Amino acid sequence: MGKQFLKIAAVYFALSELLSAIIGVSGDYSLSNIQSNIYLLGWTTLGIIGLIYVAFPALSVTILAHIHFWMHNIGLPVLILALIGQNYKVPETEVWIVIGWVLLAGGIMLFMVNVWDRLR
């Protein structure tokens, strides 16, 4: 799982930098908070988790690692799209923002349980 986390982290890094370029060229800084979320929750968080899983392979073979991967990688795009919708005044995006955050938080909780359970 460590390699999968690192690969998807690289995708989020590229998306973050692409959005940074779009923001810089357009001068529309209203999407800066979205770029920050992609960078921190995608590139940084998943990259660090991927490195942890590479360093401690026993953590990466658990069902918790697999569920966390999918919760994080469903929750983050949902959150990002909902935040973009909210930024452009799309109605009823709040529920999608909550769903995205719940999926992300749930995935991170699974990661924490995995680490605490397997690193003794």
Rank of each mutant, 00 (worst) to 15 (best):
Q86R: 15
L110T: 01
L40C: 13
F5K: 00
T93A: 02
N73M: 13
G47D: 13
V78W: 04
A65H: 04
W43N: 13
I38T: 15
T45E: 03
T44W: 10
V54L: 06
N73E: 07
I108M: 06
M112K: 06
W101D: 07
G47Q: 07
V102A: 03
I48S: 13
L6Y: 00
I8K: 01
S20I: 08
V54A: 14
F13Y: 07
N73G: 10
H68C: 01
I49D: 05
F13I: 02
I84F: 04
A21G: 10
A58Y: 03
L31T: 12
V11P: 01
Y53L: 08
V102Q: 02
Q35H: 14
L119W: 06
I23A: 05
S36D: 12
P91T: 05
V95R: 06
I22D: 14
L46E: 07
V78A: 09
Q86K: 15
S32P: 05
L41T: 12
R118Y: 04
L41E: 10
I97N: 08
I23D: 03
A9S: 14
E94V: 02
I63L: 08
W96T: 00
I80H: 01
T62R: 09
N37R: 11
S32M: 11
N37S: 05
I108S: 04
I38L: 12
V11F: 00
I80G: 11
H68R: 03
G27H: 05
L46K: 09
I108W: 08
R120A: 09
F56T: 04
I38D: 05
F111L: 11
E94Q: 03
L6D: 08
N73R: 11
G27T: 10
